[in-house]
Simulated assay, not measured.
Amino acid sequence: MSNLTDRPERSGAIQTVSLSFYRFSRGIDRLWALAMMGAARLSLPRVPGIGFWKLLGSGTGEGFTPLPDTGVYAILAVWPDAATARQQTATAPIFRRYLARAAESWTVLLAPISARGKWSGQAPFSAPDTTAPAGPVAALTRATLRPHKALRFWRRVPGISKVIGSNPDVAFKIGVGEVPLLHQVTFSIWPDTRSMAEFARRDGPHARAITAVRDGDWFREELYARFTVIGESGRWGGDSPLRTIKGQP
């Protein structure tokens, strides 16, 4: 795993969120990763400095489908600062076990810009009341679907995925979740806040889905968070996903 290539960080201890993705190619490693969706729950709380954390599976393709991908998993974790996040995602035994098994892995470090809503009854991200800095930004949405609304939600997903996939500004996108069909997380990285905001405001499948969600009360719980990207390590698809963003090394 390569050293983190960091962007300049704000002074002081800033809450840092790590999102680590792992791709497993061999069948035995995929079975191991599936089993760790339960077993890792015993190890993650013991990692020094870790706060809120979640084990996440993925859908097929780029994750925006209800069909699980048995080869891609992720760990989201909250840390008191970037130094702790950097050290523990690289050296903590549970993270090293994932790294040893994975055919490919990528970790991105994030500093919260804004957050509203709850995740498993908690508000996990502490966002300072400051203006978002220049540079790459990430968007994370998490929702618990009401079971009787799930079919309507998943009917909307192909259209949204197609629009995001055709947007040249998106550096990285993936759909993950804790429970297939019902607990869903979307994560995307954009060159700046302007491009992200333009997509959110643009009329199309995404905007219409948001309206339907509000009007139909589809979600039992939801969270929306924005982050500045402050570091990364590893590769995904053979390269850094941030490579496509102008100005990245």
Rank of each mutant, 00 (worst) to 15 (best):
D169H: 15
R235I: 04
L44M: 15
F64M: 15
H148F: 14
R208L: 13
T144R: 15
V179W: 05
D29C: 04
R101L: 05
T141G: 04
K162R: 15
A209Y: 00
E232I: 01
W53Y: 15
R30N: 04
F52M: 05
V78D: 09
G59Y: 08
A33V: 04
L223K: 07
E104N: 08
T186A: 11
K162N: 12
P48I: 05
D192Q: 07
P93K: 03
S126P: 00
R46A: 13
F21G: 09
E178R: 08
F199W: 01
L140K: 06
L42E: 05
Q87M: 09
W218E: 11
F52Q: 08
A209R: 05
V176E: 02
G177V: 03
A209N: 03
R208T: 02
F24W: 00
T89Y: 06
R23V: 00
A85L: 04
G165W: 04
P8V: 12
T91G: 00
P133M: 12
P249A: 14
R10E: 10
T84R: 12
V72P: 05
Y22E: 02
S25T: 12
I94P: 00
Q88P: 01
Y224C: 11
W119C: 06
S114A: 15
T107C: 13
L242G: 11
S195F: 00
H206Y: 05
G63F: 10
A200N: 12
A83K: 13
P205L: 03
A35K: 10
S43R: 13
R243W: 03
I160C: 03
H206N: 06
K173Y: 10
L242Y: 11
Q15M: 10
L109R: 08
A225Q: 01
R155M: 13
D239Y: 05
Y22M: 02
W79L: 09
I230L: 11
F219M: 14
R116E: 12
L223S: 13
E178P: 05
L34E: 09
S18Q: 03
E221H: 11
F187C: 00
P241W: 02
W106E: 06
Y73L: 07
R235A: 14
L55I: 06
S58E: 03
V185L: 09
F219V: 06
P191D: 07
N3F: 07
Q87C: 06
Q88W: 02
A115I: 03
G49S: 07
Q184M: 11
K149R: 15
P205V: 02
G12A: 07
F95L: 06
D129E: 14
G247I: 04
L67G: 00
S126C: 07
N3Y: 06
E232A: 14
A127P: 03
A115V: 03
V229C: 12
D215R: 15
V170M: 07
T60D: 06
R30K: 14
K118S: 11
L34W: 10
R214F: 01
D192G: 11
R86V: 04
